[in-house]
């Protein structure tokens, strides 16, 4: 029995080690750094500065702007992504010829590397590019210098790209949710003479609620961390800097202010934490209600 415990501990050790070395330690380490003036280039040892970094962050307009942009990003992409992916799921849920093909095709953007997607859209968003041409066709005057070189459109252009990339993925999750709805419910509704729309609103939507909340949680965790597309497309210019981009710029570029950047990371950590807990609480309450 003893030896079995030992083997179990041994088998579990890759995770134990990884959890301590790459999760617990970094989290504690950056928590500590957030209270110091640690800077890589400086010759003196890091000194404890209390809440100075956090106070400075509140007065740093770059940080405030990146926080604002992150919220716009999260708040703007999540509802659209959720609705569009649900529509797509409904579109490919019924039986028809080529269903598998369409499903896979819609999913393709998700398996493509974000860097490549960002490169492609950098071109598509250029002045005179395809998106500008499409915009003109529907009577919208595109910004003269291209969508990414305009403060009014840059962030939204990137958000649109992100939605494009993500809908196929969430569509799959919705499909799994749709499959889990028992057919009997629809059959009963059919017999009762409910219209398709009525069936949708009183059966499909309520039954999909847990899936939708799940999507909400994972999508917000992911969206709060948006970085690659900003790095490739705008380098944070034109009001597109996000918190993770801010962390990268202050912590890992010219300045190497580890202390300051770590404090910013913790602010983000707490925000995501609060959001996730809220969403979980919401999910639990809803489930209890049923």
């Amino acid at each position: 029995m003893k030896s079995r415990s030992l083997t179990a501990a041994l088998f579990a050790s890759p995770w134990t080690v990884s959890f301590i070395l790459f999760w617990t330690f970094p989290l504690l380490y950056s928590f500590w750094m957030g209270f110091t003036d640690y800077q890589l280039l400086s010759r003196h040892a890091p000194q404890f500065v209390g809440f100075d970094n956090y106070r400075a962050l509140l007065g740093d307009r770059d940080f405030i702007a990146s926080l604002k942009n992150t919220f716009i990003f999260v708040g703007g992409t999540i509802p659209v992504t959720t609705v569009v992916s649900l529509v797509l799921a409904l579109l490919v849920n019924r039986e028809f010829r080529g269903r598998g093909f369409f499903r896979s095709a819609y999913f393709l953007p998700w398996v493509t590397s974000m860097v490549v997607v960002a490169l492609i859209f950098t071109n598509l968003f250029e002045r005179g590019g395809y998106v500008a041409m499409l915009a003109q066709m529907v009577g919208f005057e595109p910004p003269v210098n291209g969508f990414l070189y305009d403060r009014g459109t840059a962030l939204y252009a990137i958000m649109a790209m992100d939605i494009w990339m993500a809908v196929g993925y969430y569509m799959l999750i919705f499909l799994a949710g749709l499959k889990a709805i028992p057919d009997e419910l629809y059959e009963a509704a059919e017999i009762a003479g409910a219209s398709s729309w009525r069936q949708f609103t009183s059966i499909t939507l309520p039954m999909l609620r847990p899936v939708a909340l799940f999507i909400l949680v994972i999508n917000s965790i992911k969206s709060f961390q948006v970085f690659v597309e900003i790095f490739v497309m705008t380098k944070g210019k034109f009001d597109t800097s996000t918190v993770v981009y801010f962390i990268y710029e202050t912590g890992l570029q010219t300045q190497f202010k580890f202390g300051y950047a770590s404090a910013a990371a913790y602010v983000l950590f707490v925000i995501i934490g609060v959001f996730s807990i809220l969403q979980f609480a919401l999910m639990r309450r809803r489930q209890a209600a049923w």
Binding site: F22, M33, I221, L252, F258, S262
Partner: peptide, 13 residues
């Protein structure tokens, strides 16, 4: 846990 918040400590490690 959002991975991106440990980039600085991971870098230092």
């Amino acid at each position: 846990i959002p991975v991106h918040i440990v980039i600085i400590p991971l870098y230092l490690i």
